[in-house]
């Protein structure tokens, strides 16, 4: 089960900051990031790609984007 990072409703730059904090501490594994705006989704995709983690899946469910990310 992937760890969930719920950053819905947070202003920039908190969604990216919190996501990177968790990913940097993680040795390897999967995390699922929950966001509620396209802006946060785009920012997180950009940030995740810049630290060489892999985006496995992006699901859209009732105004939530769930971004599944793999490290290692």
């Amino acid at each position: 089960m992937a760890e969930i990072i719920d950053v819905r409703g947070l202003s920039c730059p908190e969604p990216v900051l919190r996501t990177l904090e968790v990913l940097k501490k993680l040795d390897k594994g999967e995390v699922e990031i929950w966001v509620d705006t396209n802006t946060s989704k785009e920012n997180i995709i950009r940030a995740v790609n810049s630290i060489k983690c892999q985006i496995l899946e992006i699901k859209e469910e009732e105004n939530i984007y769930k971004i599944l990310v793999k490290k290692g």
């Binding site: 920039c12 730059p13 990216v16 900051l17 990177l20 950009r46 940030a47 810049s50």
Partner: peptide, 19 residues
């Protein structure tokens, strides 16, 4: 495009993200 002049420098400082 989410253009933001403050975010431009903030993201560079915080994440080294030049977008």
């Amino acid at each position: 495009s989410r253009f933001c002049t403050m975010g431009a420098f903030r993201d560079l400082i915080l994440f080294k993200q030049p977008h």
